[in-house]
C-alpha cells in the first residue's frame, strides 16, 4: 500500500492551465482588435440611425444617441423619396424578394442537376462542356452587359422581372455547377451503381439518393445565391426599369439624391435595412455553410 501511496504522490490528471498566459493574451488581444475593427462601422451606422438630425450635426459619430428616435428607420422604409415615388425602401425590398426567390430556386435547381449529370451520367463531350461552362465564370460581366440587353429585348423580356431572373440564373450557373459537381463527385460511385441495379432512373436517383445526401451543399448554394443576387446592383439597374428596381438600386437612389438636405440618419437606417437579409441568412445557416464549403472542397 505504501508503494501505491508513493506512486500517487506526483502530478496526476489533466495539466492545469493558466488563464493569463502570454499565448492567451496575444490570441484574445488580436481577436478583440479584429472584432472592434469590423464592428466599428456597424456601430457608427446603428448609432447614427437612431439619432435625430440636430444630434447628427454635432458630429460625434461614435457616441450613442442622447435621445433615441426610430423616425429615420420609418422614413427609410416607407417615406423616403426616389424620383417620383415616395414610398421609401419598401418597394425595393419587395422587388428584391420577387427577383431573388425565383432566381435562387431556378439557378440551384438547374445547377444541381447539371452537376449531377456531369458526374454520374457522363456523355460524349461532357468534360468539354464542363470546361466551357467553367470558362464562363472568368469572363467579366461588363463584356456581356450589352449583348444581353439585345437578347432580352428580342425575347421581349427587357425591363421585366423575369428577364432579370433569367440573367441571374445564367450567371450563377458556372460556379454553382462546379460546386455541385465537386460535391456529388465525393459521393461514392458504388451508391449510384447500386441505385441503378435497384431500378432507379435519372430523376429517381437524383431525388431519392443524391438530394437527401447533399443538404450542406444546397445550403452553401442558397447562401451564395441569396447574398449574391440580393446585393446585385449592376444587373438590377441595367435590366429593369424604375418601378422594378431592386432594393440596392433604391438604396443608392435614396442615399445619392441631390436635392434637399442629406439625411445621414435615414441613409444609415436604409443601408442597415438593405444588408439585413444577407446578414440573417448568414446567422441562420452559418454552421452548415462552413461544413458545406469544407465538404465541397475535399475533391475537385
Amino acid at each position: 500500500m505504501a508503494d501505491v501511496g508513493m506512486a500517487m504522490s506526483g502530478p496526476r490528471g489533466a495539466k492545469p492551465k493558466r488563464a493569463l498566459s502570454p499565448r492567451n493574451i496575444m490570441l484574445y488581444g488580436i481577436l478583440i482588435m479584429v472584432c472592434v475593427y469590423y464592428l466599428l462601422p456597424l456601430w457608427v451606422m446603428v448609432m447614427t440611425s437612431l439619432k435625430g438630425m440636430p444630434e447628427v450635426r454635432l458630429g460625434n459619430i461614435f457616441s450613442p444617441p442622447v435621445e433615441i428616435t426610430f423616425q429615420p428607420w420609418v422614413k427609410a422604409w416607407s417615406e423616403a423619396c426616389t424620383g417620383l415615388n415616395c414610398d421609401g425602401l419598401s418597394r425595393g425590398f419587395w422587388n428584391s424578394v420577387i427577383i431573388t426567390v425565383p432566381s435562387v430556386i431556378l439557378s440551384i435547381a438547374i445547377a444541381s442537376v447539371n452537376g449531377y449529370a456531369l458526374i454520374n451520367w457522363k456523355f460524349k463531350g461532357s468534360d468539354v462542356f464542363f470546361t466551357i461552362l467553367i470558362f464562363g465564370s472568368f469572363i467579366p460581366y461588363q463584356i456581356m452587359l450589352y449583348p444581353i440587353v439585345i437578347l432580352l429585348r428580342e425575347a421581349g423580356l427587357y425591363g421585366t422581372l423575369w428577364g432579370l431572373v433569367i440573367v441571374h440564373t445564367i450567371f450563377g450557373m458556372p460556379i454553382l455547377t462546379l460546386l455541385f459537381r465537386n460535391y456529388f463527385s465525393s459521393i461514392p460511385e458504388e451508391l449510384f451503381k447500386a441505385a441503378r441495379v435497384d431500378g432507379a432512373g435519372f430523376w429517381g436517383i437524383y431525388f431519392r439518393i443524391m438530394l437527401p445526401m447533399s443538404l450542406p451543399i444546397f445550403v452553401v448554394a442558397l447562401i451564395l445565391q441569396v447574398t449574391g443576387i440580393w446585393n446585385d446592383f449592376l444587373f438590377g439597374v441595367v435590366y429593369t426599369k424604375p418601378d422594378l428596381y431592386p432594393m440596392t438600386v433604391q438604396l443608392n437612389n435614396i442615399v445619392n439624391s441631390v436635392q434637399g438636405v442629406k439625411e445621414y440618419n435615414v441613409n444609415m437606417a436604409a443601408t442597415v435595412l438593405t444588408g439585413l437579409v444577407p446578414l440573417i441568412v448568414y446567422f441562420v445557416s452559418g454552421k452548415l455553410f462552413v461544413r458545406g464549403i469544407a465538404a465541397g472542397a475535399v475533391k475537385g
Binding site: 461514392p188 458504388e190 451508391l191 451503381k193 447500386a194 441505385a195 441495379v197 431519392r208 439518393i209
Partner: peptide
C-alpha cells in the same frame, strides 16, 4: 442482384 465492396447502402 449486385453486392459492392463498399456496401453502397443508402
Amino acid at each position: 442482384g449486385m453486392v459492392f465492396q463498399s456496401y453502397a447502402l443508402y
